[in-house]
């Protein structure tokens, strides 16, 4: 087994090295990126896209991606904090979902123990209804929730995840009791999609990417995105522009282990700065439909602390975290 894997790694590294050599003189940085999830998910795809951009743009000599799946990232972060202390070549992909997962899992390791490096991408949440639904607008959905929150069924991803939090915030903004929402978690947005298309639930909530092709095919009606009001377009209306105070993004970022030196931190931040501006990274963002929400250093650290506070409030309100 290990032969085969090593072989694969070798060819991957060789391909990467060749690519790096062609574009520019290869930098000396040898990075390791941990995706604290199984292959295939958003964090894994982010890590592998970074690998591609960093090597092709010649920012790093080699990039290794390792998957450490489990418990919404709780296992990965524990490894990062306990085993990689002071390692200036290690990064871990994380995102908004991890903030909630660490709280609901009562993880002994917290994000405060890591070294925040940079926020990379964001995806807004979309609220959709089946095309045959009588609900036509955000306001009508808000009215229905206000009348009886239990009768409006939501389909979305795992309990305590960004979909769940956004549904609770929607109910709160609509003036209903967020603890009473009837949120039905599915394992992943895909399975939820089937329930929404089949008209089993009132509304669906997930990243817009999950719904995009169905919305374009006219099988789902997009009520709005959780984007800022000034980002709204005719095709992608924002919920906030429709008068409901709800803004949330499912962002993804990278953090480094604790105990790295100021120089090491700066080197990692520089690498991320260069990557974010590179043509290769911008092309990936476009292909994957990820919003560029780059933010690094102290600004990101502050943002991370804010998000932790807000998430804790919501999760406590819906009863997933006992205060």
């Amino acid at each position: 087994m290990s032969h085969f894997r090593k072989g694969l790694w070798r060819s991957a590294l060789a391909a990467a090295a060749v690519a790096g050599f062609v574009t520019s003189a290869a930098a000396q940085m040898e990075l390791k990126i941990m995706a604290p999830a199984a292959p295939g998910g958003g964090w894994d795809q982010t890590a592998r896209s970074m690998q591609q951009a960093l090597t092709q743009a010649g920012i790093a000599k080699s990039v290794q991606v390792a998957n450490v799946p489990g418990a919404g990232g709780s296992i990965g972060i524990a490894q990062l904090v306990n085993n990689s202390k002071g390692d200036g070549n290690q990064l871990m992909v994380m995102g908004y979902v991890m903030v909630g997962a660490l709280l609901t899992n009562k993880s002994p390791v917290t994000l405060d123990q890591t070294t925040p490096i940079a926020r990379l991408t964001s995806e807004y949440e979309a609220i959709v209804v089946p095309a045959s639904s009588p609900i036509k607008s955000v306001k009508e959905l808000a009215d229905a929730i206000k009348a009886d929150p239990a009768k409006v069924t939501w389909a979305g991803g795992s309990a305590g995840g960004v979909d769940h939090i956004a549904a609770a915030l929607f109910a709160k903004a609509a003036g209903a009791d967020p603890t009473k929402i009837n949120y039905i978690p599915f394992s992943g947005g895909g399975e939820a999609l089937a329930a929404i298309l089949g008209g089993k639930v009132t509304a669906g909530i997930s990243g817009y990417g999950e719904f995009e092709s169905q919305v374009k095919a006219g099988k789902l009606r997009l009520l709005g995105l959780t984007s800022p009001a000034d980002k709204a377009t005719a095709d992608l209306p924002s919920i906030k522009a429709q008068g409901l105070d709800l803004e949330i993004a499912n962002w993804r970022a990278v953090v480094a282990p604790p105990g790295i030196s100021a120089d090491q931190k700066k080197a990692l931040m520089d690498a991320m700065d260069k990557m974010a501006k590179s043509k290769e990274w911008q092309e990936i963002l476009k292909a994957k439909g990820w919003e560029d929400s780059y933010m690094s250093g102290d600004a990101f650290a502050k943002n991370l602390a804010d998000e932790q506070g807000r998430t804790k409030d919501v999760l406590t309100a819906v009863g997933l975290v006992k205060s």
């Binding site: 998910g41 999609l193 089937a194 298309l197 169905q214 292909a287």
Partner: peptide
């Protein structure tokens, strides 16, 4: 479900979906 809905129902199907998206293809009704 992968080709007609863009709905990956196994880990491998999810990876294939990622492969499709890499080329800017969105599996789905269209």
């Amino acid at each position: 479900p992968l080709l007609t809905l863009g709905l990956p129902t196994s880990a491998t199907a999810a990876m294939m979906l990622a492969g499709f998206q890499q080329y800017g293809l969105n599996p789905g009704p269209l």
